[in-house]
Design a protein around this nucleic acid. Structure first.
Lengths: 347, 347
DNA sequence: TTGAAAGCGCTAACAA
DNA sequence: TTGTTAGCGCTTTCAA
């Protein structure tokens, strides 16, 4: 029993470390590190030895340690209102597929359309020193914007373009223009009165913008128009409710054009019209927004405005990977993805 | 100009570190660390000073450094086939909301129903020394299972219960039982012949299990039954195609009961039946799977089997947080969430 | 209740 | 092309 001061030791936590690989391959740890990041910078002989050692030892690199040393990690923080919403699900899906190709991983957060939740999610994501941040919309708490700016991390704001200047980059379209297109479409089909059916516009500012664009265009073209909205989430059920409300309002119901802030609402209108024996498009022409999977196959097939959900993910990934590749890639880029008009039987 | 050897320095990368907070609060860094993890272990005086310093400096803790030092991070790796699928979107959404309460973040991956992609995603997620892993299904590549086992990370397999033993914990239900329930439901409503309409069963093993349960139950009860399937994704359009195929097959079409592996397919059947003037439920009784948002409001309202998508997320989060709280929490738990039968107009 | 100090596993500057 | 070395910012003993 010696009186010797035993140095306190922490357990070795990781089973196989880079040092183990280096020992086995008879090279130094930094050569292994170099090989992992730029295999072409290492001699063929060393490369093969390292590769063999990795395979043999079943080595999984520790991104946490790498991230700390490099002061930046291979994660991208992505914040959307909700992945239950098919629009964002498509974007997230495309984004993740493309980021994955560049070996970037996705740290996902749902703000639930709440700016305070969003702020917390941004704070949490930034604590991972992410390689980039993706956030939905252009409007955020002041603190969120401040954090994002001072983080020096590339930021892409998605799904919206508008009056506000992006924090860094933006990929999306003008929702007023999408609403305007729906209005023009209905007017072109001879509708005498326009109605906009929407939901949750107090939270979903993009839906509110579409409504505003719809109503403004009707006004410009001298067509009477009004807006029926509801605080609930956009569902087929709510669409039925809104349509019933429209019918209950009475007045002149000759050649009405109905714009919906979302295809789910439009689908509910279709179902409710069917139940009440109203003809679509003869009595009521209906146009939605989203081109959701059912739009082409329902009865009648639904005319709609199709947002480029996948393209937004795709372009966002491209912007991020470009920026990460060369520091001096174009700054403050905005990409207007546009949207398209899908004419089917319901109008 | 001195000849003095200048020590090489790395840039200070983080703007505000724990040391900065400590200096300002006139305490040591380890006290700040302690305060952040267990505020009650620090004197009120020190706590207040630290809190003030944090607020003043706008300090964001660095999870990467924390994760490295603690050899475990506050992320949970979550792998689902696709978040475009409403089932998984609901589960991920619930899971994330609950994990967020425990200050755990979600690293999301989509396997696209491919076990090799899944393996890569697991490898990538494990390189973050996650606090836990969530993975969809019980069937994976051998390498995936090996990595997961040897990682010593809590693993929850979701959305499926069955013959295989879980790697660690499991939350889900038996899909054969769900298929069987659909068959019994149709038989109880007097159907003489049963048809199962499904899609992508070569990839979606859970859909294949539902089909198997449906057909086995029909056989047991002496009811003729057959299976029409298609490799495409489950959409309303495909539902229409499958139903057309059923009609084209001819034979005795008296009192047919149609089970669908997914509500989207059932919706397509409803639309196609409408177009072809077939009456539902008189000519064809239809039951789906999923209870997707439109099921209650379509025409006729759709009978369906409802999987507890949210509950799965909820229970998974509970299992994870419990396990993280006490190391010796029950090991090898399986939770059978069950599912429910929703009877509406279509049967 | 607080502080000193030793790493966690890796990257990157620099030297060889 | 490879190796040496000094941290990255934090957690966690252990001692005071």
């Amino acid at each position: 029993m010696t009186d010797e001061r035993r140095p306190r030791r922490r357990r070795k936590v990781q089973v196989v470390t880079m040092t183990d690989v280096a020992k086995r391959a008879q090279v130094s740890p930094s050569t292994v590190s170099l090989y992992l990041r730029r295999p072409e910078a290492v001699s063929a002989r060393a490369g093969e030895a390292i590769q063999a050692a990795i395979a043999r030892l079943d080595y999984v690199p520790n991104m946490i340690a790498g991230g700390l040393a490099a002061a930046s990690s291979r994660v991208v923080g992505v914040i959307v209102p909700s992945v239950k919403n098919a629009f964002f699900a498509e974007t997230v899906s495309a984004l993740q597929r493309e980021l994955g190709r560049a070996r970037l991983q996705t740290l996902l957060g749902h703000s639930e359309y709440d700016h305070r939740v969003e702020e917390e999610l941004v704070r949490a994501a930034l604590s991972w020193t992410p390689a980039a941040m993706v956030i939905t919309g252009l409007r955020h708490n002041a603190a969120t914007v401040r954090m994002l700016r001072s983080s020096n991390v590339p930021v892409v704001q998605i799904w919206e373009l508008g009056a506000e200047t992006p924090i860094d980059m933006a990929v999306g379209f003008h929702h007023e223009q999408a609403g305007a297109m729906a209005a023009r479409h209905l007017i072109a089909r001879g509708r005498k009165t326009l109605i906009y059916l929407s939901s949750r516009t107090h939270q979903d500012k993009r839906a509110a913008d579409r409504a505003a664009g719809f109503l403004a265009t009707a006004a410009e073209l001298g067509i009477p128009a009004r807006h029926i909205t509801h605080p609930g989430a956009a569902t087929a059920e709510l669409g039925g409710t809104l349509f019933s409300q429209l019918l209950a309002e009475g007045g002149d119901h000759d050649r009405i054009g109905v714009g919906c802030s979302n295809d789910w609402i439009a689908l509910g209108v279709l179902f409710e019209a069917q139940r009440r024996g109203k003809r679509i498009p003869e009595d009521y022409a209906v146009i939605g927004f989203g081109d959701l999977p059912f739009a082409g196959s329902c009865n009648p097939a639904l005319s709609t405005i199709r947002p480029p959900s996948e393209l937004i993910g795709h372009e966002t990934a491209r912007l991020i990977t470009t920026r990460l590749r060369c520091e001096n890639a174009p700054y403050a880029t905005s990409i207007d993805t546009g949207f398209s008009e899908i004419h089917r039987q319901s109008t």
